[in-house]
Structures are given as C-alpha cells and as structure tokens.
Write a protein that binds this DNA or RNA. Sequence first.
DNA 1: TGTAGTAAACCTGTATGACAGGTTTTCGAA
DNA 2: TTCGAAAACCTGTCATACAGGTTTACTACA
Lengths: 220, 220
Amino acid sequence: MTAIARLMRERDLKPGDRLPAEALLSKELQVSRTVIREALRSLAALNLVRLGAGRRPTVAELDDGAFSLMFEHGVVTDQIDIQQIYDARRTIETRTAALAAMRRSEAECRAILSHAQAMEDQLDHPDAVMEHDIAFHIAIARASRNPVFVLIIGAFQGITRQTWPIGWKSRASDDERRAMNALHMKIAESIAAGDPKASSTLMGEHFDQSIKALLNAGLI
Amino acid sequence: MTAIARLMRERDLKPGDRLPAEALLSKELQVSRTVIREALRSLAALNLVRLGAGRRPTVAELDDGAFSLMFEHGVVTDQIDIQQIYDARRTIETRTAALAAMRRSEAECRAILSHAQAMEDQLDHPDAVMEHDIAFHIAIARASRNPVFVLIIGAFQGITRQTWPIGWKSRASDDERRAMNALHMKIAESIAAGDPKASSTLMGEHFDQSIKALLNAGLI
DNA sequence: TGTAGTAAACCTGTATGACAGGTTTTCGAA
DNA sequence: TTCGAAAACCTGTCATACAGGTTTACTACA
C-alpha cells in the first residue's frame, strides 16, 4: 500500500488520473497480484483511489466516507459519545459559518437559503427536513472554501442521521420546530449579508439549542 | 467489509475483542477467503481492526493514522493547501486549549508543561523541539477529553512534520524562537491555572504567529 | 497442584491458476 | 469520418498450496 501511495506521489497523479493495472503493478513491485489487490482495497477504503470492475484504478477526489466510518466506529465501540461529536461540530461550524459569510458566492447563498426554506416548507416530512438540514450544513462548509472542514463536517452526517430524528421528536411542539427552522433562516440570511460575526453567533445558538434538545431526549 | 463491520456492531465488540478467523468468516458470510482478506485489509486501512500474522483480527482503538493519510493525500493531490490546514487547526485548537483548562488532570498539566519546558531546553536541537511541539498539542487535545479532537489533531501531525522545519527556519533569530517557546509556556501555565479564556486566546495568538512564519517562508 | 516445555491445532500472508463478466481499444466496413 | 464488432485488457471471485507465526492443550516434573 505504501509503495502504491508513493508511486502516486512520484508520478504527480491527480484525481481522475489512472494508475497502472493490477497485473502491471504486480510486475513493477515484484509481488503477486493478491498483494496488489489487497493494497488497492486498502487505498480504496481510505477513498484515496477508486476501483471499478473492468476499469483501472483511478486517483480519487477527497471524500468523507472513510472519515464517516471511523467516527461511527468510535461511537459504536463506545470510544466517542454524542456530546463530544456535537461539541466538535459546534467548534467547527461556528467557524465555517463565519468563513462562508466572507467567501460565499451568490449561487452558494441561494443554495443555503433554499435548504433553509425547504426545511420550513416541509415541516410535515421530517425525513426531508433532515436531508435539507444536513445539506444546509454541508453547503455552508463548502462556502467556507476549506476542504478540511468540508471533510470533517461531511463525516459527521452518518451520526447526524441517527441522532437527528431523536432531537426532532424531543422538541415539544411544531412551534419549537419552526423556531429551529427560523434560526436556520437567520443563519442563511446573515451569511448572505456577509456578516461573519452574526453568522458565527447564530450558528453557535443553533448548536446550543440542538444540544439542549438532545439532552432533553436523554441522548447525551 | 460492510458485513464484517455489521458483525462487529451486532456482537457489541469493543477494542481488543477478537473477530472470528478468516476461515470462519468465509463460511459464515458464504464468500471465499480472498474476499474476507480484502475486506479485512480495508478495515485495517481504516484502523478499525488490527491484523497480525498468526493472530485473529481484533477490534482496534481509534487511531489517527488513517485520517493522517487522507489529509496528506489531499495535500499531495493539491486538494488541500497548508493555509487551510492551519485555519482548521487554529479553530479546533483554541477550543481544545479552553477545554483542557477546564478538564485537565494534574498529571496532564505536568505533561503539557514538561513538553513546553523541553522545547525551551533543547533549542539547539530542532528535531527534538518539533517532536515536543507536536506532543504538546496532542497532550492538550487529550486533556480536552474529546476524542474527536484528539483524532483530528493527531491526524495533522504528518503535515506538521513537513511544515514545521520551514516555519522554524523562517524565524529570524533564536530570540524569535524563544519567544515562540515562551508562548507555549504561557499556554501551559494558563491551562494549569484553569483559565479557559486565556488558554484559548493564547493558543489563537500562537497560531497567528505560526501562520505568519509560514507566510514569511512562502509556504502559504 | 502448579509450572514449564513441546507438539498439535489454529491462523495469517503470499503465490498461483482458473474463469466469469465488465471496460477499453482497435480495426474494418460503410 | 463514424459506427459497430471483435479482440485485448481489466477486475472480482474462487480454490488450492505452502511457509511461517500464534495459541491451545497436554504431559512431565517438582
């Protein structure tokens, strides 16, 4: 695996570029095809390469899938708890909201706003609200222009999908749910207005309320 | 791979617990041993399991190695730049410093202080200073009691090892290097004093100066 | 009864060959 | 020049074999 990673570096390969075929790598690195396959599987697990039947491996774009698995593993094996995830999210996402306010494009504004609006419009469909909620946060991360944050925040979505319904149900009424959505809307507006301080503050409040909801639900 | 991960979850396996042997998994999941091996390699690449010749696979503790590879891949393939890493570090590490001030044990204080002291004492040995610098940050992350932060910060050390010498050399004099170390010491002291606000502020300054040094070096 | 040593059983890591099915490239015809 | 088909390339899975490492069980001795 190390040898293949080194080879990608030496050849200055970029996302989308093709690696040599298994058979050729086997010859080049003087090991059996089995070892190459196992190494490629490892690299694929890390989303560093993409594999496909009949196709040669290609260098992959960054992808949060592997991060996501690791965080989930941490939770499943009781090495990480939900409160820790939310604290990390709050820390990072107050920053991405501020950066988004400074760096977003008009198209990104519209996307963020449309997710907030969709949450408001689809209050009767919690599943849809959840997907828009997740997309809302990821759109903000993207608008921050920092792929490190995009990766990390994207990686939390698996856990978020598990905790979100609990938080949603723990709110006492639809009015409370609407208030949550109104906060989303305010965040979107302050990002659109290019106000980093307000964006950060509002995002912090949003997380404080989400954490409180999970506390009320006994999840934390 | 998914099936094996599911199996770990269903059997409520914890770090150190043993998985069934390849041959047994092969029988249980009705696939050849090759497929099991490839899947286990994938899980090992993510540091979710540990493999060893002659030993059965065991569930692994969280480990930043895989994260580290992914961040490095991002940098090598020009998907992440150093400034983005430093911004993410600043965001997270101002928070870990604050949490450490609130949650650290006496032993953790001593460890953090000793790393800061060692940096001061070994100014003539940049390699040693770097290792203590990295350990200093990780010790603070540990004292934060949030393994999510520990993972992420630990994952940056590969990149840090590459950029640190450049930042060190870009400082104009040993006096400047001593000033950097003095700031480390101040951070350690404010964590020991249990002052989250000061810890956070000082860590922010530390990062501002490190980022400036890398700017001066033309790395950002 | 407890301990140490050894052998057997278990276990992984690597190699090889075979074959099914998917993808890409090449060549010939229109 | 374009399109279609065939050939070449390519991956995914399976099975078998063997080398070398680890764990377990058993026996002998104190």
